[in-house]
Design a protein around this nucleic acid. Structure first.
Lengths: 337, 337
DNA sequence: TGGCCGCATCGAAGCGCTTCGACTCCTTGG
DNA sequence: CCAAGGAGTCGAAGCGCTTCGATGCGGCCA
């Protein structure tokens, strides 16, 4: 391995000069800079990460904690992770991947060891057990997702409440009065994942304001679960004409089952989904949907974190506004006889 | 931050003693060890990663390079990534996430800076541009996927050739003579991704041996693409009774389209898939499939890498044997009139 | 013309840890 | 009873980098 000292010797300057060329923290004459840069290139020098971290107490690494669970739509997680990584690189940071498996202890380990300069937590629950440790550690962090108590935390998330409301408005405008909400798996609600509860909340409030009836049913993905859920729903509310799906692996089964029952989409029933755009356009019916801005969430989270690390302390909670794209799965409610 | 020296002072021993307690590289009396451990706990000491890396020239980090592309089944990538991370933790390593975006230069950067002790490359192509750099760097590495030339490399992969052959055998045994292979998107073949070509290869060879006819059609995911592909396939080979799908986002469209055309599964046509088990059981018809052992691949890759880092140099290429699970999408070919 | 300031550079002191040699006991075999 | 050797501990020398004075030097203002 080539070291700073070797570069310095090769360029005929002192080690500190090379260091300043690299960091730009002091002015260096053009001629010296060029000489040093030439030596760096010629010797193929790469600064040693450990030494740099030790001397500067900055690792230039940010930790990304992703959930272990697979009961939520994985591609979204992946997209966020990739957006985080590429954005981080653009700011000169690398990304350390942590899984939920290690538990809250991971926060302490990373914090304590100086492995990372800051962290990004995904899949934050309303009462997340990692938060007390986070707050105590004083580690710069950004959450993707919104806990119940956000004091002292920086969060980035889709505005789920507005998302729910937006969907209801869309269906209401089309004349639908009875809505069924096909939700995430029961486990998602049980562990109080913020986004699921908030969506429901926003959606129910708006429905109440507009005088619509809403039936909410959590649903595991797949055909069998969806079949049972649909049967029950139509039993309980035969007049349901609007479906709102917030569970990607229930989308296709629902469409197939509606077809089976002879309910045409969108003539007999309308379907709107909260899912990645890719899912919406690849489905057997092009779905009216509110997209999940995974990339933007990842990018914003990193930008916020980097700003914190640079000493700026920007706004605390950033909610991205939802966008509904009407496609062919929703239309005017059939007028009743 | 608490340092080694503070722990040492607190415990009334020298710094090196604390270090040896931590690493276990020299024998320490039980009483001293206990005293030191108590101090560590009491002070909440965590060794500084940078200092440790500098002194030992080991970062205890492994780099995982994942592809940026999203034309392949993302959940599999994610599952591998998670398996890699948890296995790595179990061996005392953290995982640094690199995306393909940075290009082959990432290999050099990580190697040169001592950021990681070794790396795992995913989505390796037959003639991967990262390999020359990897070989040159001498960095311990494990590939998930098999390049054309494996000399000097350690690789872990599903035995795709055997996978293709296994599927053909299954359908042949059921009496099918005309097979259609619905493959990955054309782009996947164009960039010479090993697994796609190998599967095809294994499958064609076995089909030739058994006297079956095979039609291979790459296919983008989604309904429209699948509809076009299916129409063309049945035009060209009306007698096709066996379908083999190696593209998760074509599975459900295919099943729906077959239904539309009045071809019952498995009575009229059989369908086998190469996909994660979860996809196979969640489909509208429970699919006969060869699973993709994502977890095992991730786990094995880490184990191989850790062995290398520990100085053992185990076998170079590890091919996992495929397993076919018969479900309800395949059955005996209808006897011809 | 003298004093000052700013630019460019250097030297040295760490950052917190690992590791090697050395030292002190204490046991054990001859 | 002594030499040999092992167990347990310590001190010190780095690992490669950053960063804080200190230094030398030329230009500028009064």
């Amino acid at each position: 391995m080539v070291t700073l000292a070797e570069v310095a010797q090769h360029a005929g300057v002192s080690a500190s000069t090379v260091s300043y060329v690299l960091s730009g923290k002091r002015s260096i004459s053009a001629s010296t800079r060029q000489r040093v840069e030439a030596s760096i290139r010629e010797l193929g020098y790469h600064p040693n990460a450990g030494a740099r971290a030790l001397a500067s107490s900055r690792s230039n690494i940010i930790a990304l904690m992703i959930p272990l669970r697979t009961d939520m739509y994985v591609p979204v997680m992946m997209e966020i992770a990739i957006a985080v990584t590429t954005t981080a690189r653009a700011h000169g940071y690398d990304v350390l991947l942590l899984t939920g498996e290690e538990g809250p202890g991971a926060v302490r380990r990373v914090t304590g060891s100086g492995l990372a300069d800051g962290m990004i937590l995904m899949d934050v629950e309303l009462e997340d057990e990692r938060l007390p440790l986070l707050r105590a550690s004083g580690q710069p962090a950004v959450l993707i997702g919104l806990p119940a108590d956000t004091t002292g935390l920086t969060c980035v998330d889709l505005d789920w409440r507005a998302t729910g409301a937006l969907c209801v408005e869309h269906l209401a405008m089309l004349g639908h009065r009875d809505l069924a909400v096909i939700g995430e798996a029961p486990a998602v609600y049980e562990r109080h994942t913020g986004f699921a509860e908030r969506t429901l909340d926003g959606l129910r409030n708006r429905a109440a304001e507009l005088g619509l009836r809403v039936l909410h049913r959590p649903c595991e993905g797949g055909y069998d679960a969806m079949a049972a859920t649909l049967a029950r729903t139509l039993d309980e509310r035969p007049d349901t004409t609007g479906f709102l799906v917030q569970n990607e692996s229930a989308v296709e089964p629902l469409l197939a089952l509606l077809r089976q029952r002879g309910r045409a989409v969108p003539e007999d029933v309308s379907v709107a989904a909260i899912c990645p755009d890719q899912v919406a356009v690849q489905a057997s019916v092009r779905l009216t949907s509110v997209g999940i801005p995974a990339q933007e969430m990842g990018r914003r989270a990193v930008e916020r974190l980097v700003a914190k690390l640079d000493g700026h302390t920007p706004d605390e909670v950033l909610l991205l506004p939802p966008h509904l794209t009407p496609r062919t799965s929703s239309g005017p409610a059939a007028t009743r006889s």
